[in-house]
Design a protein around this nucleic acid. Sequence first.
DNA 1: TGTGAGACCGACCGGTCGGTCGGTAGGGTC
DNA 2: GACCCTACCGACCGACCGGTCGGTCTCACA
Lengths: 197, 197
Amino acid sequence: MTTVTGAATSARQRVLTAAVDLFATQGYDATSVTQVIERAGLTKGGFYHHFASKDALLYEVYGDLITAQLDRLEAILAKRLAPADTLREVITDLVVSTAASAQRALVFWRESHRLDDGHTAAYRAARRRYHDAVRKLIRSGQASGEFARVASADTITFTIFGVVNELPLWYRPGGRKRPAQLATELADFVLAGLENT
Amino acid sequence: MTTVTGAATSARQRVLTAAVDLFATQGYDATSVTQVIERAGLTKGGFYHHFASKDALLYEVYGDLITAQLDRLEAILAKRLAPADTLREVITDLVVSTAASAQRALVFWRESHRLDDGHTAAYRAARRRYHDAVRKLIRSGQASGEFARVASADTITFTIFGVVNELPLWYRPGGRKRPAQLATELADFVLAGLENT
DNA sequence: TGTGAGACCGACCGGTCGGTCGGTAGGGTC
DNA sequence: GACCCTACCGACCGACCGGTCGGTCTCACA
């Protein structure tokens, strides 16, 4: 009922915004299409004119976030910096971009297990691609002797993605720490753990 | 329909087992009571004879996992070991106990946002208690100079719980690495990052 | 043999869900 | 003015949801 947005935003955009809000706070299943359209200020018919299904909406919520991250990953790798510098840049980008889209990241990540069909298989593949790149990076750093072998590349990779994926759960945009500072701290900590003494 | 269990298991236990399985793979909302009872091999009436509601079932799934973890935390803290040794024991217990109850941990943690009522507020409090204890431990280690100040205690705490909470997503009981080894690697890595050089 | 209690059954309830569809309002084009 | 197309409306649909309830079966104990 209460249309939140101003005059000029498109119905489609209003639906997306409302859906992210509701999905993030209530979860996907617990949010009805009716709730979404009430907040977005349109009707069932209008909704289904723009979106094929409720699932399609969830799919779109995540949208290009992961692919944009992947693009920037490739750009960082292309610079061919030393492993430590590469890893620092990768971690920083992950933290900053996840914090910037915290709500969307939260929704998709919490709900992604429901989406094993072809639609989202692409997203999961992208996710794995990112994961593999980081692991390979750590492994090569360990092979060259730049990184310590204190733990396996797998475990360290899971650790990095663990924090990053959970970040939407505790990060608050207005909080004391800026994303850039979080990123620096995390990179410092990870690289300290990898330091070859 | 297909009752998975043998003869002697109680209906109540069969329901719990079936529910954890289904919740873990499909999510709580997407799993109907009918699905649960079909797998457990009883009927609606039987289910509601044992459980007050579907919510109560979710509540029970997590059961005493977190409180048992909390008890062991207190036991470890009571030993009053050096921060590094304490942290190692804490991490080991977290990893091993989470791996041992991976499915249950996954369900509760993914679904816990739905449970803001009094029932589960206690669980969230326990979780926070654990979180605070680890942070305090790191902070005191940093204050005494045993740990490096490479990153804030907050960030390091979030990192530890990040991996642990995500562990149910990638850990496979039959996998190559035993939980104890994972725990050792993680503790090694964290402590390497905290080492004061 | 009688009786009471717990375990369990299954038809049924009101309500809500995601999704459909015939219709309309308005603007661009010829 | 006739036409189409896109955006949007809202009453409606069948399916299924969580939960109820009167009843049955079994068995311990009297």
